[in-house]
Simulated scan of single mutants.
Amino acid sequence: MPTVLRERGFRLFFYSDEGSPLEPCHVHVTKGDGEAEFWLGDEVAVAFNHCMNRRDLAMAMMIVRANRSALERAWHGYFG
């Protein structure tokens, strides 16, 4: 699970096996016991949320949006 970014207590990462066929470009975000997945692309969207409270989810969304280009580059660099 390559970690791409750590910010404000959040860890942004990819799973090494993102499905076959490969799922669309996205990032997983954890903080404490919560985890969310965000689709990247023209519009950042929450794919799922597991136990992340509203405040943390909003902050995670802000971090993902602010770093979207770098996250997309990291995705394509890792998965090809």
Rank of each mutant, 00 (worst) to 15 (best):
M1S: 14
M1W: 03
M1F: 05
M1Q: 11
P2H: 05
P2D: 02
T3Y: 04
T3M: 02
V4A: 06
L5D: 07
R6E: 15
E7P: 01
E7Q: 15
R8T: 01
R8A: 13
G9A: 06
G9C: 04
F10Y: 13
F10V: 07
F10A: 08
R11L: 07
R11A: 14
R11C: 07
L12V: 15
L12Q: 10
L12P: 10
L12W: 10
F13E: 12
F13R: 09
Y15H: 15
Y15I: 03
S16T: 14
S16V: 11
S16I: 06
S16G: 15
S16C: 10
S16P: 11
S16D: 15
E18M: 10
G19F: 09
S20G: 08
P21S: 12
L22K: 11
E23H: 06
P24S: 09
P24T: 05
C25M: 02
C25Q: 01
H26R: 13
H26T: 08
V27F: 02
V27R: 03
H28G: 03
H28N: 07
H28E: 00
V29A: 11
V29F: 03
V29P: 04
T30W: 00
K31D: 09
G32A: 10
G34N: 11
E35L: 11
E35P: 00
A36D: 00
F38P: 03
F38W: 04
F38L: 03
G41Q: 07
G41M: 06
D42T: 09
E43D: 14
E43W: 00
E43F: 02
E43C: 05
V44S: 03
V44A: 06
V44R: 01
V44G: 05
A45M: 10
A45T: 15
V46I: 14
V46S: 03
V46T: 15
V46L: 13
V46M: 08
A47W: 03
F48A: 05
N49M: 10
N49L: 10
H50R: 15
H50Y: 12
H50D: 08
C51Y: 15
C51M: 15
C51V: 14
C51D: 15
M52Y: 12
N53R: 13
N53V: 13
R54T: 14
R55H: 14
R55I: 13
R55Y: 12
D56Y: 13
L57R: 13
L57E: 12
A58H: 08
A58M: 06
A60W: 00
M61K: 14
M62T: 13
M62W: 05
I63Q: 05
I63R: 07
R65L: 02
A66T: 00
A66P: 00
N67V: 01
N67P: 05
N67F: 01
R68I: 00
S69R: 11
S69K: 11
S69D: 13
A70H: 09
A70R: 13
L71F: 09
L71Q: 02
L71H: 03
E72P: 04
E72G: 03
R73C: 08
A74V: 02
W75L: 02
W75I: 03
W75R: 06
W75T: 01
W75Q: 04
W75D: 00
H76I: 01
G77L: 05
G77M: 07
G77N: 14
G77P: 10
G77S: 12
Y78M: 00
F79T: 10
G80T: 09
G80P: 06
